[in-house]
């Protein structure tokens, strides 16, 4: 249990660096970009208090913002995602709830559950991010299209990471 804090801190740093060094340089078809850093919020333990999730999300987004010159954009999208997270967890909970000592991962609750969990939150995050990026509601179909494509790519990366790195 004690190990959870350093492990999450390490994950925070690694995901931010991976995002700004590697993933921000990947652009499928011009403007589609996978945002894997939100995996950090997805993998926070069930028992994390709500206010802590919000604060961690804020600093996660802000760190990415500092590197991409988009102050506040990733931060607000991440905070919104962190805010929605408990409601999503509640609505897709298995019949007998979440067991103590388990984490929100494929290993514990299966692929289908994780896919539902990840896609809903990633879509919400991306929609918020791209909306606040254009900051106007003209040409909204472009925002939806980007959200849709980026959600697919991020989800693929998240699922891959589950099978390659966080197997247990």
């Amino acid at each position: 249990m004690i190990k959870i804090i350093p492990r999450n801190l390490f994950r925070f740093v690694v995901l931010v660096l991976l995002q700004v060094w590697v993933l921000n340089n990947i652009q499928f078809s011009g403007f589609v970009n996978p945002y894997l850093y939100i995996l950090f919020i997805l993998l926070l333990p069930f028992e994390t208090p709500g206010w802590l999730v919000l604060i961690l999300s804020f600093f996660l987004g802000l760190s990415v913002d500092m590197f991409t010159d988009t102050l506040g954009m990733h931060a607000s999208a991440s905070v919104f995602m962190g805010f929605i997270r408990p409601y999503v967890l509640q609505s897709i909970a298995p019949r007998d709830g979440y067991e103590a000592g388990t984490f929100p991962r494929i290993f514990y609750y299966g692929l289908i559950w994780f896919l539902k969990y990840a896609i809903i939150l990633i879509f919400i995050h991306h929609l918020f991010l791209f909306t606040i990026e254009v900051f106007k509601f003209g040409s909204y179909y472009l925002v939806l299209w980007r959200t849709f494509l980026s959600t697919i790519f991020t989800t693929v990366f998240v699922i891959l990471s589950q099978y390659l790195i966080f197997r247990k």
């Binding site: 709500g50 206010w51 919000l54 604060i55 804020f58 987004g61 988009t70 102050l71 506040g72 954009m73 931060a75 607000s76 905070v79 919104f80 805010f83 606040i132 900051f135």
Partner: peptide, 15 residues
Amino acid sequence: IFILIECFSIFLTIQ
């Protein structure tokens, strides 16, 4: 807390 942090983030974005 959510409203406070979110407002602060959006304030940053606009600024």
